[in-house]
Structure formats: C-alpha cells, structure tokens
Simulated assay, not measured.
Amino acid sequence: MTGTSETRRAGGRDRDAEGRARNARPRDGLGRPLPYGAAGVERAPEGVVRRPGDTVTEAQALLDAGRPFHAHEVFEDAWKSGPADERGLWRGMAQLAVGLTHAARGNVTGGARLLRRGAGAVEEWTSATGRPRPHGLDLAYITGWARELAAAVERDGRPVDPARVSPRLRGRAA
C-alpha cells in the first residue's frame, strides 16, 4: 500500500493513527483515486492547521499547478480548524476548488453547480461580515471568476485546463 506512513488498512479500510477513516490510495493531479501501488501526485496532508495567509498561499500554488482538488483539501483544513466566524468563507472556497475539479474532469453539470454554490457561499459570507478582502482574498473577483467559469463550462461542455483557468485568489494584480 502506498500513502502516508500514518495510514494503515484496518478491516479493509484505510485508517489514520487515531482510527479515523482516511483514504490512502494514491491520487492523480485532479484527485481521482488510483490503484494501490500506482504512482500518484503528492497529496496535501489532511488536518493541518495553517495561518490564514499560509492557507491562501498554499492553495494558490496548488491551483497554479492545476491541482484544484488538492487546493480544496487545504481550504477544507481551514474550514474545519479555523475560527467559527470564518467557516462559511473557507467552506465556500473549498466548494469553488471542488467545482473547478469537476469542471476539469469534464463533469459540466456538477462543476457549474459547485462553482455557483461556492460563489454564493463566499458572497453570503462577505455580505454578512462586510469583509471583502479577508486574508488578502479578493472575494469580489473570485465570485465573478466562478460565475463566469460556470457559464463557460456549461456553454462549451468540455473539460477545462485548471492551471489555465484558475483564479488569482488575491486578485488579478496579485
């Protein structure tokens, strides 16, 4: 079995050292599971507590590399470990990354739906908090990007290149 040294198979399921379910199968660049023993891409470790700025920087690097599924895992860590008042923001950002993942995999309907759902969650969080640029994120740009990409995915009906269409999280000038 490949995967992290902290993950083991127990009763036919991958488990971490605390016994929580963790999928240790290698994954491709878009997060699709590969057979055990196959060469996959390095995965973002799960459950890492990062400073918000580090979350944005790491997620941007993964998006730039065409790995939106892995960026989603970074956002998910922030959603689960961050302050309660920011969880809606990070959940929305994770949904955007998953929407991009689905669009890159050719799932037109799911990709567009998740891009719009994530944009709505981010926009709702911004409206509720009055914070349009938390941690340097340009949320107005990000929500516009997501809605434009959702429309393009539906119109064109074919997979996108995630490295080419990924957003600049801190805005166009970043």
Rank of each mutant, 00 (worst) to 15 (best):
T126L: 03
T7E: 08
L139N: 08
R158K: 14
A173S: 15
A97H: 03
R131F: 00
A119N: 05
L114R: 05
V49Q: 13
P83R: 14
E58R: 14
R116V: 01
A39Y: 01
V153Q: 03
T126D: 04
R27C: 00
E76V: 09
R105Q: 08
W79Q: 09
V98F: 04
L62W: 06
Y36M: 11
I142A: 13
E42K: 03
E86F: 10
L63C: 05
R50P: 02
L63Y: 08
R164H: 12
H135W: 15
G106F: 05
L114A: 08
R51I: 06
K80A: 13
S127N: 11
P52F: 10
A121R: 13
F75V: 00
P167W: 09
G82K: 04
L149R: 04
A151H: 12
D28G: 13
R158E: 15
R131D: 15
G92Q: 08
R164V: 14
R32W: 01
G106E: 04
R168M: 09
D138E: 12
K80P: 05
R67K: 13
A78K: 08
M93S: 09
R113K: 12
G31Q: 09
W145R: 12
V49M: 11
R67I: 00
Q60D: 10
V98S: 05
D85T: 12
A104F: 00
A24K: 13
V41C: 06
A152V: 08
A174F: 15
G40L: 03
G130A: 08
R27Q: 11
A150S: 08
A119D: 07
G19W: 08
A150N: 06
P162R: 03
T55C: 11
L115K: 04
L149K: 03
Y36G: 09
R170G: 14
R13A: 14
T57M: 09
V56C: 07
L137Y: 00
A173Q: 13
R15W: 06
G92Y: 06
G53K: 07
L137W: 02
G3F: 01
R131C: 06
P132W: 08
L139R: 14
A140S: 11
D54W: 01
M1Q: 09
W145M: 11
A146K: 01
P83A: 15
A151W: 06
P68A: 03
A163Y: 04
G19L: 03
M1C: 10
W79A: 08
G136D: 12
G29I: 00
R117A: 15
D14A: 12
R155Q: 14
L115T: 00
E123S: 15
